[in-house]
Nucleic acid binder design. Structure first.
Lengths: 113, 113
DNA sequence: TCCTTAGTTCAAAATCTATTGAACCTTTGA
DNA sequence: TCAAAGGTTCAATAGATTTTGAACTAAGGA
């Protein structure tokens, strides 16, 4: 099973450090724009290579920002909205408000089909 | 004069990246605990060496998190509370709520007089 | 004027983070 | 059973960040 921190193991410095990155903020923006629907890793492919995304998902998961659940050959990514709200009230909302408006990193443009 | 970004130049990824660091979060915690009183650099000396703090203050200033004003031979550090609230409503408050409770980095303990 | 206080700057070293591609694993469907 | 889809892991590299100490600067007071 994939390791996820419990709510009280989520650390502010770690969450901030993990979200202080264009690619990971773009992942958050995509998740938020799609509502509460969990997305498979492949949905984010414009943001980087498979292995690079895998790295970013692990960072987000270890920090407690996303949940990753195996589902067949896929893995579904979802935001740990309730957990983050419980731990740091107001934080996620204020970040998402801006994250959904952020221009995506260069790569997405270059690789756009 | 010291360069400070204007309110609309403040960038979320940069603010988050800058605050995703124990030392800088501790600086924020100290500022918040002292109310709105500006503090001189030397007040933070338990958090690191002079040159190291100078580096962290520059990072915080460049990201738009603090304001640094010369005052005699000192420099007074203050939080850009209003500017951050205007740019990212709710963000600073939710971070401060936790930052003021955070255990200080190891160094402070070792160097405590 | 000279000294002290307070902080900056610089270059070097140490450390950490992100990115890549190749090889791999696991589940599912044919 | 085999192949494909969807991801992970690893080692290597590149790049960025943090830390250090020594040398420096600027303002204020004796």
């Amino acid at each position: 099973m994939l390791q996820h921190p419990t709510v009280d193991q989520i650390s502010l410095p770690q969450v901030l450090a993990v979200l202080g990155d264009q690619t990971r903020l773009a992942i958050l923006g995509d998740l938020a724009r799609r509502g509460d629907e969990p997305l498979a890793c492949a949905e984010f492919k414009l943001l980087g290579s498979k292995s690079n995304l895998s790295y970013h998902f692990a960072k987000l998961r270890e920090a407690g920002v996303i949940r990753v659940e195996p589902c067949g050959t896929k893995r579904l990514i979802s935001l740990r909205k309730d957990d983050l709200n419980a731990r740091f009230p107001g934080l996620l909302d204020s970040i998402l408000a801006t994250a959904v408006t952020l221009p995506p990193p260069e790569k997405r443009i270059e690789q756009a089909v």
